[in-house]
Write a protein that binds this DNA or RNA. Structure first.
Lengths: 220, 220
DNA sequence: CTCGAATAGTACCGTACGGTACGGTTCTGT
DNA sequence: ACAGAACCGTACCGTACGGTACTATTCGAG
């Protein structure tokens, strides 16, 4: 076998097919995502689909993995940040998070995985969380740790803190977008939302200038 | 027609059938929820199903409406509350919210509506939000207004404030439960979560004892 | 008791899907 | 140039679902 055929990667041809399947899923939902339609739209044969991905589940998993390979994350370069820079980073993260969660492909894949979650043997949901969310979470954790190192915020459990930030940013937007409320998907308001959420986050975890007489929050 | 046959209500027989359909949905997900299986499990005929509910969509909508009719809400009796009582009410609300969202029937119905949300003509998602969430939201709004009247918290926009409370309580739990993460559905931790969320909520919106020097949060 | 409406149970129909098989074509390594 | 693999397009199969039609049975009103 040739050297560029690694087991976990996809050939350019398969890459195109997966991209086409994603477009199909976004356009019409799971009902439209049949093996025959994917094959016809992508100008490939069903036999190739089954040889490449095993079965329909494998195709869906490959679509998730393929999409997850696109998102990139924040990396801590170790450089010090002043408070304005750190706040801007947080706002940027919040804005990106809202934009990613509200994206067409993300919503379609989440709907797909949630629809399959009732069957016990389906691991699509777990796959989506691990491959998609994990990267975002790690980037956010690195950002929070950097903020703590520069003494802009203080916390003990980075995971707890990140989850609070996530809740302040996303609230119930994700579920409502998943349910089909298109009115709230306008990214016009994402800016204000991100600003407000970061304000609230600093109110909870920000270090005061003189002493930390701010509200301390603890897990009971 | 007799007096107890109102147009929007269901007969006891239909009530039982809907209950049976809900059990079926919870047990096996949408794949199992076929008209034939519902009819067989409920000991009724498919013809009756179609006469009562029109088509499959109507049956699903009736299931949502039937389930929504069960949830009851907080009602403001106008009596004054001290701070401890108000905090207990908030914690109770948060705990109930987590328990409702994590319930089997709620998760199954949300998965169902989200799965159908890709089709444009399906209004199940909107129906679920209006009939299910609306009641909870109104109860929470009444509770928050009561807390403001008793000067335990302060805010300007009750909807904004409620959404923040929701985000602090739920975070990403709902979506992850929808995706099938059963580990986080243990209500054992719901108590701690509710306490922590209410602590954070008071840190953001609580009125200080002497003067309100607490963090003011506003929409930019 | 009789009649008619409502219902249970079943059979049926058209359609669509997942998965497999096969002939014809293109690509690739030697 | 040639052989073999990969691949496209299509046909095919078994199954299952949504919805309808029909018969037998139940049940309530007069």
């Amino acid at each position: 076998m040739s050297d560029d055929q690694r087991a976990k990667e996809f050939t350019p041809r398969q890459h195109d097919v997966l991209e086409c399947a994603l477009s199909l899923l976004v356009a019409g939902g799971e009902r439209v995502l049949t093996t025959a339609r994917v094959a016809r739209t992508a100008n490939c044969s069903k036999e190739s689909l089954y040889r490449w991905f095993g079965d329909r589940e494998g195709l869906l998993a490959a679509m998730i993995a393929h999409q997850a390979s696109k998102v990139r994350t924040f990396s801590d370069n170790g450089a010090p940040m002043d408070r304005v820079q750190f706040r801007a980073q947080l706002v940027g993260f919040a804005h990106d998070l809202l934009q990613v969660l509200g994206g067409d492909v993300s919503l379609a894949l989440n709907r797909l995985a949630i629809g399959q979650a009732s069957r016990e043997e389906s691991r699509l949901g777990q796959l989506l969380v691990e491959q998609g969310r994990r990267r975002i979470d790690e980037g956010a954790a690195a950002l929070l740790e950097a903020g703590r190192r520069c003494q802009h915020i203080e916390f003990t459990d980075v995971d707890e803190t990140y989850r609070t930030l996530y809740g302040l940013v996303v609230r119930d937007l994700h579920v409502r977008m998943l349910l089909g409320e298109d009115e709230i998907r306008k990214p016009k308001n994402f800016g204000e939302m991100a600003e407000r959420a970061v304000d609230q986050f600093f109110a909870l975890y920000g270090v005061q200038e003189k002493k930390r007489m701010g509200p301390r929050v603890r897990a009971v």
